[in-house]
Design a binder for these strands. Structure first.
Length: 522
DNA sequence: CGATTTTGACCGGCGC
DNA sequence: GCGCCGGTCAAAATCG
């Protein structure tokens, strides 16, 4: 039996190098001369996957199917050579006898190893039970908290009741232990809804099909140059569809603070920001989207300029981002995203987009309930993520609710490494458990950024629409992008859960149809 | 020559 | 009302 050398899923890490046209440093600034060498490297996260896994891999879109998930233990290979010796053709020699003896010894060693793994398996299974219980407790607490503040928000109904129902049982309806996925779905679901609304609204007159291509986006932005400002500022009449989104954005900004209600959700959603702090020499993290720079300003208190970009993948896409180096440490790049994409995203962009979407929704989940901004602020101010206060925080003090992911506390380890099994520190940390339950994406980011989680298979479905010939964002790598991508991808979290479940072996037989993971819907 | 970036001007919000 | 500041625009400059 030939054992295929494991193939790997490689994550392109893209650093825009000094020649990048987006490079902020082209503008003379006090940051000049502080560039460090950009690191480019393909991260080899999942080296335990082989080709056959294409058929066996966990179907993260339809549920946790812990069938034949590779554990990295290479269990199928240890008896191969002995099998061969047992069916030997009979032509024996001293050398072969010695080899047989050594193989018997190896068998004994491996058996001992299997026994050890079995006990470890049992230990991990117990941990999973405890983790599930903790998760349910936390989620119930969260739902209760949200209900107290929402008071009849229709969004809250079925989802939360389902959560409660599942948690009350300690299991999903099909008997499986509850898998933390509701929060993953939430952001995507809302984001999708908003995208639909946008596309179906008059302001979303251009469909993504019409504007999905970069070429058309460029045409759009080119055409927008004609008189946009005058129209937007002189009169709201005779707006072209192209300009309407801009006006909507302005209207959102100009909306009276007293005007709250049904549209507050959308307003907050649009204003919610996700800020990513990362050590990077690159001028801009490559997140898979296409951006066009539309401005640059010196911000108060920071010698480095702040650059403004807007998404150009669709004409009416309201997403913008600001890129600025940290005032205290110019090696830290701060990228702030705002808005929701209203167009199909390339696989490379899905991760960051879903992160921003989820983060925005996370903010929303604490802000839609009450029309009282004070309540929202209280919620946000208390919402420091359990995983690490320095790594991911919510802020209500800034003009817009902002989630900050700080990757600078534990710099991303760029070393490619083989994938053993789950890292030793995984799952036995109460805070980590709680964090994973509450905020799967952030948790997975924490896992990665702390380099404590080093292995499990990721489904190739991480990029469900990926195309083999799609350029992997050039030759420069970007740890920030990859980290964000991993952190953001619901499949990663689901794969994490699936792998644990699979390794523990406790989920296969208890019904597979119920607790379906829909994390990568949409 | 079209696409993209640069950069000074402009606008609105906000605090005083 | 004034000035500061963040954000945006759009003509000019630059790039490929």
């Amino acid at each position: 039996m030939d054992i295929q050398p494991p193939t790997t899923i490689r994550f392109p890490l893209l650093f825009d190098d000094a020649n990048d046209p987006h490079d902020l440093d082209r503008t003379p600034s006090p940051c000049d001369g502080k560039r460090v060498v950009a690191v480019g490297e393909m991260m080899d996260f999942f080296s335990v996957k082989n080709d056959s896994d294409a058929k066996e891999e966990i179907d993260l879109s339809t549920g946790l199917e812990p069938v034949n998930v590779k554990t990295g233990l290479n269990l199928l290979t240890w008896n191969t050579s002995s099998d061969q010796s047992m069916v030997d053709d009979g032509v024996s020699s001293d050398v072969e006898e010695k080899r047989d003896m050594s193989e018997v010894e190896r068998m004994a060693i491996l058996r001992a190893e299997v026994e050890r793994m079995g006990s470890e398996n049992q230990r991990l299974r117990d941990m999973l039970s405890k983790t599930s219980a903790d998760y349910c407790a936390l989620q119930t607490h969260m739902v209760t908290f949200m209900q107290e503040h929402k008071q009849g928000n229709p969004e809250d109904g079925p989802e939360s009741s389902s959560i409660r129902r599942q948690c009350n049982d300690g299991k999903a309806e099909n008997g499986k232990p509850l898998i933390p996925r509701q929060f993953m779905e939430l952001g995507l679901a809302i984001a999708g809804r908003e995208a639909e609304d946008h596309l179906s609204s008059p302001s979303g007159g251009r469909s993504s099909d019409q504007l999905g291509s970069p070429v058309k986006a460029r045409e759009y932005w080119g055409s927008r140059k004609i008189g946009t400002r005058k129209i937007s500022r002189s009169s709201d009449k005779n707006q072209s569809p192209d300009q309407e989104w801009l006006l909507n954005n302005k209207a959102t900004r100009l909306r009276s603070p007293s005007k709250r209600g049904a549209d507050q959700t959308e307003s907050v959603m649009r204003k919610a920001r996700v800020s990513v702090r990362a050590q990077s020499a690159a001028a801009m993290i490559t997140d898979g989207c296409q951006w066009r720079k539309y401005g640059q300003k010196m911000a108060k208190g920071n010698p480095c300029p702040r650059a403004y970009y807007r998404c150009t993948m669709a004409a009416s896409c309201p997403v913008r981002k600001q890129v600025q180096r940290c005032a205290e440490d110019s090696s830290v790049l701060i990228t702030t995203y705002e808005g929701q994409h209203n167009h199909p995203l390339p696989p490379a962009a899905m991760a960051m987009a879903s992160t921003t979407s989820s983060a925005a929704q996370m903010l929303l989940s604490g802000s839609t309930s009450s029309s009282n901004r004070t309540t929202n602020a209280n919620f946000l101010s208390r919402a420091t993520l359990p995983c690490s206060s320095s790594m991911a925080t919510l802020s209500a003090s800034s003009p817009f609710p902002t989630v900050t992911l700080d990757l600078t506390q534990n710099p991303v380890n760029l070393q490619s490494r083989p994938f053993p099994s789950l890292g030793p520190n995984f799952s036995n940390h109460p805070k980590a458990t709680a964090a994973a339950a509450m905020f799967p994406r952030l948790f997975s980011q924490a896992m990665h950024s702390q380099s404590k989680f080093s292995g499990l298979q990721m489904s190739k479905d991480i990029s469900p629409h990926s195309q083999p010939d799609e350029p992997q964002q050039g030759t420069h790598n970007d740890s920030t992008s990859a980290t964000a991508a991993i952190a953001a991808n619901p499949n990663f979290t689901a794969a994490l859960v699936a792998a644990i479940s699979s390794i523990m072996g406790g989920l296969q037989e208890s019904g597979r149809n119920g607790c379906q993971n829909t994390a990568n819907e949409g």
